[in-house]
């Protein structure tokens, strides 16, 4: 989003205590940090990791849904799904651009995704075997993403915050089309309703895992909160998501697959909230470490797209170079 020449302009800032204090003071005053401003290296690196992961998630997230575009049952569903998947591609681009303002190159990020060093949201390593999954993803996965992204619109790093504002504007239809799809199935035949319930059963817990490890185990939370990169902890966001989503499931006659789910009127400082069962963190870490059902497929698909697109990128660059040299001559 800024001139390449300015990127990472301040790599040699010395991180004295006075410098760190002055930086924290700007953060505490809710001043936005912009690309050419001096910033602690750890702040820069945290953002590169976080925005990069976020960008990769948008791009890999196109795969499970893209898989269903040709099989959408009506034209209405097909245009919605096409538009949604196209939006996700755009989200990836806004985020890559934001990360690039911190001094990392697009090529480097692509390379890290393809060689497995960069992570993306584990949710996309689950398969989408039924049409109901397309609805459930919009409703739960985009729903959880929105929960995460709304506070990021106030992130202390300007380019990330601005990208998030744009993303959030576009995201709302993703969740609504998903919920509408699931609701339609619930109003259909017994078989269709069963398909919706089965899909919720499979996606509920992985959706809760999208908020990341519990606050007691999260290695990144404290510093990110102090720097106002994040505004809520993983557990706070997870609780908000559960409280918002359970009534939505009930409204269309679906059962959330958690026998420990109970309303607790004392939660959320007396406003009430749901107590819920234990999340299977072993499964979470297994998928993060690359052993989910779809990890290999997702990276293979990205690699194929990258490799098979190489000749297009090369041709475009060769043409541009030729045009330039003939206009100079």
């Amino acid at each position: 989003m800024y001139s390449q020449g300015l990127i990472g302009a301040d790599n040699k800032t010395e991180e004295t205590q006075a410098f760190l204090d002055a930086f924290q003071k700007r953060i505490d005053a809710e001043e936005k940090i912009e690309p050419n401003d001096p910033m602690p290296l750890a702040y820069r690196n945290t953002l590169i990791r976080m925005i990069g992961q976020h960008a990769h998630s948008e791009i890999v997230g196109m795969l499970p849904e893209g898989n269903w575009i040709t099989r959408a049952p009506t034209l209405r569903r097909k245009v919605a799904l096409l538009a949604k998947v196209q939006d996700e591609g755009g989200h990836g681009l806004y985020l890559y651009s934001a990360a690039e303002t911190l001094g990392v190159s697009r090529e480097q990020m692509t390379e890290e995704l393809l060689d497995g060093t960069a992570k993306y949201s584990s949710i996309f390593n689950y398969p989408t075997p039924t049409w109901a999954d397309i609805g459930t993803i919009g409703w739960l996965v985009d729903g959880a993403a929105i929960m995460n992204q709304v506070p990021l619109c106030r992130c202390s790093y300007g380019p990330y915050a601005r990208a998030m504002i744009r993303v959030c504007k576009e995201e709302s239809f993703h969740q609504r089309q998903g919920y509408e799809l699931v609701k339609t199935l619930c109003e259909g035949t017994a078989e269709q309703k069963a398909m919706a319930q089965d899909s919720l059963d499979r996606w509920w817990w992985p959706s809760l895992m999208m908020f990341g490890p519990s606050d007691t185990d999260s290695q990144h939370s404290d510093k990110s909160m102090q720097w106002k990169i994040k505004r809520f902890t993983n557990d706070e966001l997870r609780q908000k998501f559960i409280d918002a989503t359970v009534p939505q499931a009930e409204l269309i006659g679906l059962t959330v697959p958690d026998k420990d789910l109970t309303w607790n009127p004392t939660k959320n400082r007396g406003k009430g909230g749901y107590d819920f069962g234990e999340i299977n963190w072993d499964e979470f870490w297994r998928v993060v470490q690359g052993h989910g059902l779809m990890n290999k497929d997702r990276i293979a698909a990205r690699k194929k797209a990258w490799d098979e697109g190489a000749w297009v990128r090369e041709a475009a660059q060769a043409y541009a170079a030729k045009q330039q040299s003939s206009s100079v001559a």
Partner: peptide, 18 residues
């Protein structure tokens, strides 16, 4: 915002799409 493209024609097309 910004984007990568080989030349201005492709940049305009991508900007329209994005």
């Amino acid at each position: 915002g910004s984007l990568h493209a080989a030349d201005s024609t492709l940049a305009l097309q991508a900007a329209r799409d994005v």
